[in-house]
Design a protein around this nucleic acid. Structure first.
Lengths: 219, 219
DNA sequence: CGCACACCATGTACGTCGTACAGTTGAGGG
DNA sequence: CCCTCAACTGTACGACGTACATGGTGTGCG
């Protein structure tokens, strides 16, 4: 597409991949497509990355590196933990398509461990022994990722008419459910129904996680 | 491979796909591979499924249908909720490779809604209004899925020598971390390190989720 | 100035994937 | 007996990841 402007580099490739994923879903992130987008031959990518997997790792680490950790403070541990999870959430929420990738780097690559370190620190401060802190911390971070990754099952939030099609299909399906077998699903249907990405959902479930940690500590 | 024994059907294909996924990871589940495994031409699959996606949906629903829901009882809601999540966990834990598929059918297809119904019912009983119940319930189920899906990032738990290779690599990486910047990660390293799939981890985090719901209710 | 060499990109080719489209089979009912 | 139609085959296409061999280019050293 665009004729070569600057030399390629890991960073411009990763940036390009990220905007591509945001716009068209992770499936659109293809060696060939990235090459084309940069006016270059597919094989040029292999100078900068060993293979596609390490390119995706790059994407994932870029995402994790974008987490803006708040400064450590004197506030109670649960407030600080909440802030960190919030910061994590804020960073990945704009990129739901790539969020799943974070799962496999969060405990492996440096940008992820930077977040993990802070989480573990607070959990230790809250009185968890290392094994417990590790288990709880792992789960907290995975949960935040899931929170955003699980939302729109298709890579791209379907736009316009396709979205309406989906909504209609969902309504039809819910309408077909036996009301005496699924009263609660039907009652909750408007809120289950597709693509609520209201802040509510995220805030509520961050609260749930924090409250859960608090609850664990008491035992 | 095996020469034709019985006629194909959605069920035998799904079963085959499931054992294949368990044994070799989700990437091994291929139209062509499934065909070969059943001594049949790839295109034969398309008689039984519209496309690969609906085959995967079949897999996912098979998984969700295997959840053995406990009978509703008179016990307090939190105990019952815990039992349901446990049952859900038990069902998907043997199939970590396909667990992520469950994410996109749990709120769409009947076998998933069957579980959702019970979760929502208990949350309503605990005093949550439908919108809240929907948000919390969605998150709970997604979290349980994540719990098992997030574990081994490669589709197959790497066996034997490859596993040792992975462990060595991880140790090396952790050893290279600056001890004053990552004291807590390093302290927790043995517990973060690869593939703990001890029951501990699951039990602890189910407790966390339940405690979180309890905590939410109090506000 | 010119040369070498690391660096970056190209060109071609292979094997695998999902699947469109058209053709073939064989069991069972009129 | 033949017709029907569910179940399956055959062939082909375009897209994917990537191995291997080759070509150019800018920068720093002599």
């Amino acid at each position: 597409m665009a004729k070569r402007t600057v030399r390629l580099s890991r960073d411009v490739i990763v940036d390009c991949a990220m905007t591509l994923a945001d716009a068209e879903g992770l499936d659109a992130v293809t060696i060939r497509r990235l090459a084309q987008e940069n006016g270059v031959t597919p094989m040029a990518m292999y100078w900068h990355f060993n293979d596609k997997d390490s390119l995706l790792d790059g994407l994932s680490e870029h995402l994790l590196a974008s987490v803006k950790l708040p400064e450590p403070g004197e506030a109670p541990w649960d407030g600080q933990l909440r802030e960190i999870l919030q910061a994590f959430l804020d960073a990945i929420r704009p990129h739901p398509a790539t969020a799943v990738l974070a799962l496999r780097r969060i405990l492996v690559a440096e940008p992820g461990l930077r977040v993990a370190e802070r989480v573990l620190e607070l959990l230790r401060g809250a009185g968890f022994e290392p094994p417990r802190a590790a288990e709880v911390g792992t789960f907290l971070m995975c949960s935040v990722i899931t929170l955003v990754a699980a939302d729109p099952s298709p890579g791209v939030p379907p736009a316009g008419e396709e979205r309406e099609e989906m909504l209609r299909h969902k309504k039809a399906m819910l309408g077909a459910l036996s009301p005496e077998r699924y009263p609660n699903v039907i009652a909750a249907a408007p809120y289950l129904a597709v693509c609520r990405d209201e802040d509510d959902y995220f805030a509520l479930n961050l609260d749930l996680l924090i409250a859960g940690v608090r609850g664990l500590r008491r035992n």
